[in-house]
Computed example of a mutant assay.
Amino acid sequence: MAKFKHHLFICVNERDESAPRPSCGHSGGKKLKSAFKDAVRDAGLKGQVRANELGCLDQCEHGPVVVVYPDAVWYGFVHVKDVEEIVSEHLVYGRPVERLRLADTCLNTESCPHKPMPKHK
């Protein structure tokens, strides 16, 4: 079997609703995997693109989060209505969808516009 051209990693992590941070699963992440699988198939990319669900990507304030590898493009606030555009633009034509792309300054940082301000002690 040939290797995949792209892997989609879709966060479906679910925290308790009382947790201080949100979770992608409660923000619609669970619906994204099936939507991506359908869109990949409809675009004729089955066997070239693999859609995988996984647990926390530690970008909870940006959820639902989807990462496209090997391109290392992180998408945030993804909804089912965005799936077709990501598949068509990014996976078919190689153009990341900039309006959904998370800024590098928001990845693995303690502060960004989407995260609450840290409490000082």
Rank of each mutant, 00 (worst) to 15 (best):
P116Y: 11
P116H: 12
W74F: 15
V78T: 07
H90V: 04
V40L: 03
A72E: 13
A43K: 08
V73M: 04
P70G: 06
K81F: 06
D16C: 09
G28Y: 10
A39L: 04
P70T: 07
N108Q: 13
C56G: 11
S18A: 14
H120K: 12
V92R: 15
G47Q: 07
C56M: 05
F77I: 00
P96C: 07
V67C: 09
C60D: 09
D58P: 08
C60K: 08
P70I: 03
H26C: 01
P20S: 11
L91K: 04
D71F: 04
L102G: 03
R21L: 14
L8G: 03
K33F: 07
K37W: 03
G25V: 00
V67P: 04
C24L: 03
K30P: 02
R99L: 02
H62L: 14
D71S: 15
V67D: 03
L107A: 03
D71L: 01
H6T: 02
K31T: 05
V80P: 06
E17N: 14
K46T: 14
H62P: 01
Q48E: 15
L57I: 11
C60M: 06
I10S: 01
M117F: 11
V87E: 05
V97E: 10
H114Q: 14
C24A: 06
K81P: 04
N108V: 07
A51K: 02
H114S: 14
E110K: 14
R50I: 01
L57C: 10
H79L: 08
L54D: 02
H90D: 00
L45H: 08
D16W: 09
D104E: 14
N108I: 01
H120N: 12
V65T: 10
G76M: 06
S27C: 12
S34M: 06
A2G: 05
A39H: 05
D71A: 13
V65D: 02
V12K: 10
N13Y: 11
V83Y: 08
V80R: 09
S34K: 14
H90I: 02
A43V: 00
C56S: 10
S111P: 04
K81L: 07
S18W: 10
F36W: 07
V87L: 05
H90A: 04
H6G: 00
R21D: 12
G44W: 09
I10T: 03
L57N: 07
V67K: 09
K33S: 04
Y69H: 13
K37L: 11
E85D: 12
K46P: 05
R95E: 11
G25T: 03
V49D: 01
L8I: 05
L45V: 02
P113M: 08
A51Y: 00
V40G: 03
P113N: 11
K115Q: 14
S27Q: 15
V12C: 07
G94H: 07
